[in-house]
Amino acid sequence: MNRIVSLFQNHPTHNLNLYFTAGYPKLEDTRTILKALQESGADLVEIGMPYSDPVADGETIQISNQQALENGMSVKKLFEQLRGMREEVSLPVLLMGYINPVIQFGIENFCQHCAEVGVDGLILPDMPVDEYLEFYKPIFDRYGILNIFLITPQTSEKRIRQIDSNSEGFIYMVSSASVTGSQTGVSQDMEAYFARVNAMNLRNPRLIGFGIKDHETFEKACQHASGAIIGSAFIRVIQQNENLAEAITSYVSSVKQGA
């Protein structure tokens, strides 16, 4: 069974997904951060594939992308770094990024490499649902790689139900129509959106992303979904601390258990 599916079956609530950019702050930090997240009590991990034009991301993640690329990070290098990770990491691991580098690498070649190193799923926000279903789903299925779709407050009920019926693992529930790192807290409009989606009784669990940064916002998200995704706030943690393992353990504990 896919590790993502297994996680939500065995642990349906209060799941914390941490996002970080591969090759940042330093090129060889990817495995260090991944192992620290495993040991700190994170529930799943999202590794960002650096891209030169990350249009959906705010300044913090944009800067991390640029630095990682300057450090020499590439899709090929990332797969080299992840080789053998399953000897020390049991968490579900997803790769997140933009479709263009994946197409350049070759969709089938990319999925095959994911399967070989133990990646469980992909999040490609700019890949259209219909294009995935028509051209790529059989390839993803062949290698056991889940494709995680995003929904926003503007996504129609029809499209949400289409996504739900063609998904496994979870649905990434973007809390607002903004870039990453631009929101603080959970507004009344967001709560109305969460309630609307909850009322649809979808078969897939959801994780809420954008605007989650601490114990308070994590708990608020967990009232409406199976957990939350933290990106920009976590990037700032690894950006500002030399001792990555210690900083990561402290931060994850503070988010899940409170100060």
Score class of each variant (00 low, 15 high):
L82P: 01
A42S: 07
L150T: 07
V174N: 01
Q154L: 14
A56T: 14
V174G: 02
R86T: 05
I47L: 01
E246W: 09
I63A: 12
Y251W: 11
R86K: 08
Y251A: 00
S6H: 11
N198Y: 03
I4R: 03
Q9L: 08
Q81Y: 04
V237W: 05
L7W: 02
V102E: 05
H224C: 12
Q223C: 14
S175W: 06
P128K: 05
E46R: 00
F79T: 01
G58L: 07
V75L: 12
L146K: 03
G211W: 04
A56R: 11
C222W: 01
M173V: 10
V102H: 02
L44E: 02
R161N: 14
R83G: 09
T60A: 08
G118N: 02
S64D: 07
H113M: 14
R142P: 10
Q104S: 12
T180F: 08
S74K: 04
L94D: 04
N100V: 07
N71A: 03
F105I: 12
V129W: 09
Q239H: 11
L133K: 10
Q67W: 11
F140L: 11
Q162P: 12
M1E: 15
K213H: 15
M190N: 14
P54E: 06
K77L: 07
V117I: 06
V93I: 05
H14K: 00
L91M: 12
D130H: 13
H215F: 05
R159F: 13
T32I: 03
T30F: 03
Q239W: 11
V186Y: 08
V102I: 13
Y24S: 04
E39N: 14
F8P: 09
P54F: 06
L122Q: 04
Y172C: 06
N65H: 13
S178F: 14
T13D: 15
E80R: 15
S178V: 15
A225V: 04
E46M: 01
S64P: 07
G41K: 04
V102F: 08
N147K: 12
R236V: 02
M49H: 01
F8D: 09
S253H: 13
Q162E: 14
L122N: 05
F149V: 09
Y143D: 08
F20C: 01
N201F: 09
L95F: 01
N204G: 13
Q81S: 02
F194I: 11
